[in-house]
């Protein structure tokens, strides 16, 4: 086991934490943060696993840069939607009513 694998293992742990948070946390800001933690985990796996032979690999590094920009874009849109919901409903969480589950009847 070398240093690169430590990054990949940390990334795995962060991904798992992020996914659990994204699903379980009711507060939207926490969900958005969890998404970013999940993303960081993926990026660590991507860079860490690729350089397990000991030499850094610029290709996944460039891919991670692309991934970071995409994550910024998604985070911004998510924050804008969350703000809009806050303004309309006064709450930073998704309503738990029927629209969330299958609507049997209205």
């Amino acid at each position: 086991m070398n240093a690169a694998l430590v990054y990949a293992l940390t990334g795995t742990a962060l991904f798992v934490l992020g996914v659990a948070g994204l699903i379980l946390q009711p507060h939207l800001l926490r969900k958005i943060l969890a998404f970013n933690i999940m993303g960081s985990g993926i990026f660590l796996v991507m860079v860490g696993l690729a350089q397990r032979a000991g030499t850094p690999d610029p290709v996944p590094q460039a891919m991670v840069l692309t991934g970071i920009v995409v994550a910024i874009a998604a985070t911004a849109l998510a924050l804008a939607l969350a703000r809009q919901l806050l303004d309309m409903s006064g709450e930073m969480r998704l309503p738990e009513e029927k629209s969330g589950k299958d609507r049997l009847d209205v």
């Binding site: 991904f15 991507m46 696993l49 996944p60």
Partner: peptide, 9 residues
């Protein structure tokens, strides 16, 4: 994307 990262790895 994690799947892609693993495949590249």
């Amino acid at each position: 994307l994690l799947g892609v990262a693993l495949l590249y790895g």
